Amino acid sequence: MWILDRIEGGIAVIETEEGRLELPRQQLPPDVKEGDVLVQTGSGICVDAAETSRRREKIAERYRRLRSKP
């Protein structure tokens, strides 16, 4: 699983299970955003919308729980 960490200039910085990967921004879908989960397919790299949504909800829930603690 790859997660887009940030875009610096024309370089996309991606976190992978093996470490950090840097790719030209043009190799990613035009609508990609920081935090998106990316998958490599036979036709290139695409956003896994379902996994991205699941991870964002999980993070939001953790944040809500942290904020509710006294």
Rank of each mutant, 00 (worst) to 15 (best):
T41K: 10
R67M: 14
E17Y: 02
L28A: 03
R55T: 03
E34Q: 11
V13H: 01
I45A: 08
I3Y: 03
E57D: 06
E15H: 07
E22F: 01
D36E: 09
E15G: 05
V47A: 06
Q40T: 14
T16D: 08
R54Y: 03
I7F: 04
Q40M: 13
R65F: 10
I7K: 04
I3S: 02
S43E: 15
E8V: 15
L21T: 06
A12Y: 01
E61G: 06
L28R: 03
I3H: 00
E51N: 05
R55L: 08
R64Q: 11
E61W: 08
M1R: 09
G35V: 07
L23Q: 02
I45P: 01
P30W: 02
S43A: 12
P29T: 10
E51Y: 07
S53A: 13
P70L: 11
E34P: 06
V47M: 06
D31P: 02
A12M: 04
P29Q: 11
V37H: 03
D5G: 02
L23A: 02
E61D: 14
I11G: 05
L21G: 06
P70K: 09
E17A: 14
I59D: 11
E22Q: 07
V37A: 06
T52H: 00
V37L: 05
T41P: 05
V13R: 03
R6Y: 04
T52R: 01
T41A: 12
T52Q: 02
R56H: 06
R65N: 13
T41G: 14
K33E: 15
P30H: 08
T41D: 09
R25Q: 11
S43D: 12
G42P: 03
R56W: 00
E34K: 12
D48G: 07
S68F: 01
L4S: 03
G35D: 09
E51P: 05
L4P: 00
R64A: 07
R25T: 08
I7Q: 01
D5E: 07
G42Y: 04
P70E: 12
Q26A: 15
W2L: 11
T16L: 06
G35M: 04
P29A: 09
S43Y: 13
L38T: 04
S43G: 08
E17I: 09
D48N: 15
P30M: 06
D48R: 04
A60N: 12
A50D: 15
L28P: 01
R54L: 13
Q26C: 03
C46M: 14
R64E: 08
D36N: 09
A50W: 11
P30S: 14
S43C: 07
E18K: 15
P70M: 04
L28Y: 01
E51F: 02
R55A: 00
I3T: 09
A12I: 02
A12L: 03
A50F: 08
I11Y: 05
W2F: 13
G44A: 15
V39Y: 07
P29V: 04
I11N: 11
E57M: 09
P29W: 13
P24C: 05
E57Y: 01
V32L: 00
S68K: 09
L38V: 10
E51H: 07
